[in-house]
Amino acid sequence: MSAHLPHPLAVDWAAHLARDRRRSAHTVRAYHATADRLLAFLAEHWGGAVDRSALAAISTADLRAYLAHRRGGGLGNASAARELSAVRGFLAFAGAAAPPVKGPRKPRSIPRPVAPADVVALAEDVADEAREPWLAARDWAVLMLLYGAGLRIGEALALPGGVLPLGETLAVTGKRAKTRIVPLLPQVRAAIESYARQSPWPIMRDEPLFRGAKGGPLDPAIIRRAVQGARTRLGLGERTTPHALRHSFATHLLGRGADLRALQELLGHASLASTQIYTAVDAAHLLDVYRHAHPRA
């Protein structure tokens, strides 16, 4: 079997995003992959080559079949909504009207951690909406710090430029001026370093690492608004906030066997009682899974 070659239309779409829309490299790769997947699916679905004229005939049934194919591969609600948004943009670029297809139904807004795949979809959507590639890199890095290191948004935005160059851990100053050490996952470290390389503002040791569009300290309200817009577009619950990413970090660690005392240190809680709420959250989540999945529930 010959290796799959990227479809020329998908290549043109990626070039348009990078050159004309000034999207980030991450967004270009993700949207290029979506367009290429759609075109490959339609070629098999229709039994022939796909070009601009063929795309003009795409129907609601065709698009639903593609989304069902992707959902069959394990795509979650938020990721499916993001995929549909990318498909609509690509079809518009190709001169084809996107058929009317509703996105995934919004889940009930109940207290629960944000699923890892939905965290990534949320961060990607926020980055996609940024006006400049460096702003996309900044927003991605901030959200990765909240979920990947469990920081409060205020802690992330208070980080000084002096944290660079990064190592395997990060010193974070939290409430009551208490400093704690948190480990940095490679993905989180890479996100911060990518932002630092792209920032048009000089990163000074004693000034905030994360800057606003005009060079001043980044206002947390900007991140909150960006997350609010993304959760609406992706059909996520109203409780999906920047702080919910920190809650998800804690809950997912606990669910994977993290020690409660170690989690207390990572989160910077003065009292173990503050950390113990996550045992209740995790138990509630497991009970919900049991009720929906167990054949005798």
Rank of each mutant, 00 (worst) to 15 (best):
Q198A: 12
V142F: 08
W13G: 03
S85E: 13
V142P: 09
A61I: 12
D139N: 08
L272Q: 08
A78E: 10
E83P: 04
A226H: 00
A94E: 02
D118A: 08
L75Y: 05
R82Y: 14
P208D: 10
I277A: 10
A92P: 12
L63Q: 07
G73M: 05
A190H: 09
A177Y: 15
L166H: 06
A127Y: 06
S271C: 11
A10N: 00
V114Y: 07
R88F: 10
A86D: 06
L84M: 09
S53W: 15
P186Y: 01
H285K: 13
G148P: 01
K102P: 15
R211D: 10
Y147K: 02
E132P: 02
L267C: 05
A137N: 04
G48L: 05
R29Y: 10
A33H: 08
R239G: 13
A262W: 08
E168A: 12
T27Q: 00
L267G: 04
P116Y: 10
A68E: 13
V163Y: 07
A270G: 09
L151S: 07
L151D: 02
D36Y: 03
L287Q: 15
G174W: 09
G95T: 00
E193C: 08
A158Y: 03
M204H: 14
L185V: 09
L164Y: 06
I203T: 08
S53Y: 15
S271V: 11
A96S: 00
S199N: 02
A43S: 09
L170N: 06
W201R: 00
R138P: 08
H69Q: 08
E155M: 03
S2H: 14
L234C: 06
V182I: 04
I223S: 05
K102T: 15
A18T: 07
R246M: 00
G76M: 06
L84E: 09
A141C: 01
A284N: 13
D36Q: 04
L145D: 04
D139P: 02
A270I: 06
A270N: 07
D125F: 15
R261Y: 04
R176M: 14
G48K: 03
L84Y: 02
V182Y: 02
A49G: 09
L260D: 03
G76L: 13
H26Q: 14
P104G: 03
A117E: 15
L253F: 01
L84H: 02
H4R: 15
L266G: 00
R82C: 15
Q187I: 15
A117C: 11
R225Q: 12
E124T: 06
A35I: 02
A117S: 14
E129H: 10
R22L: 13
W140E: 14
S24K: 07
A191E: 07
G76A: 14
S194P: 11
I110K: 06
A283K: 02
R239M: 13
A61F: 11
L17S: 06
Y31L: 07
D219S: 08
H243W: 05
R211T: 07
G237F: 11
V182T: 05
F41C: 07
R23G: 05
A141G: 03
A213F: 12
V11P: 06
R233Y: 12
T251A: 11
R189K: 02
G154F: 06
D36I: 05
P183Q: 09
H69I: 00
G212L: 08
P104W: 06
P6M: 03
H4A: 15
P295N: 04
I277N: 07
A30Y: 08
A221I: 14
P200Q: 00
D288R: 14
H247E: 07
A262K: 07
